[in-house]
């Protein structure tokens, strides 16, 4: 175990998206790896009915001092990892602050009311501008496109997990997270998962924030 002092303690991370996108898995993999390094980790999440197309979020809280509750207070996020841009903005509105760092997928998932013609999905450029204006630093990437390129939209969460590690905002390394992935998945399914993770990782590592 080797834990470094955190730049802020507790370090609060929100992982958000739409039910079914796999945000819980991101939180578990990152959380488990951090717990192994000796950090006191708490993850709060809401599931149940959220599987049926609603918005979902996981709160990861990290400390070297003591245990924190499962909910991040309003305005208290340090990192927002968004699997869907509208959800990223929804979270920034509640949990953002002038210091927050944001990594977001740019591919929208339309709420059912949009398909019904009742509401309109926000204009993408405006959405992007609002996300940037509410963040100290921000990375945009089309993780869904990367995942589809690797054969399955279900890899989107692994691309985003890679992006989180590549941003260096968390005190975990590529090797540590890959070890976690290897423990979690059967060997014969690992190749595309690791590839998705590495693509996301090199995106944030190479591009820096916008």
């Amino acid at each position: 175990m080797s834990k470094d002092k955190l730049s802020v303690d507790p370090l609060n991370i929100v992982v958000c998206g739409v039910g079914g996108q796999g945000n819980i898995l991101i939180a578990r993999l990152a959380g488990r790896s951090l717990a192994k390094r000796g950090y006191i980790v708490t993850i709060g999440e809401t599931y149940g009915a959220s599987q049926r197309g609603g918005d979902v979020m996981s709160n990861i809280r990290l400390s070297v001092r003591h245990r924190y509750g499962p909910l991040i207070p309003p305005g208290g996020a340090h990192i927002v990892l968004g699997l869907e841009p509208l959800e990223t903005l929804r979270i920034l509105v509640d949990f953002g602050n002038p210091q927050v760092a944001t990594i977001t997928n740019t591919r929208p998932i339309l709420p059912v009311t949009v398909g019904m013609g009742v509401t309109q999905y926000p204009d993408y450029d405006e959405l992007r501008r609002a996300i940037a204006q509410l963040s100290r630093q921000v990375w945009f990437l089309d993780a869904t496109e990367v995942a589809l390129g690797l054969g399955s939209v279900r890899l989107t969460n692994m691309v985003m997990l890679g992006a989180l590690v590549g941003s260096s905002l968390l005190p975990i390394t590529k090797a540590q997270l890959e070890e976690e992935i290897k423990e979690r998945f059967p060997k014969d399914t690992l190749k595309p998962i690791l590839e998705a993770f590495r693509k996301g990782l090199s995106h944030t590592r190479a591009t820096g924030c916008a």
């Binding site: 009915a49 049926r52 609603g54 305005g75 509208l86 709420p111 509401t119 204006q133």
Partner: peptide, 19 residues
């Protein structure tokens, strides 16, 4: 910041209903 966030919510954020 709070005002900026509230304005963004008003202009852009729509609900995501269960179904």
């Amino acid at each position: 910041y709070d005002e900026r966030a509230k304005q963004a919510a008003k202009d852009l954020v729509i609900d995501r209903e269960l179904m």
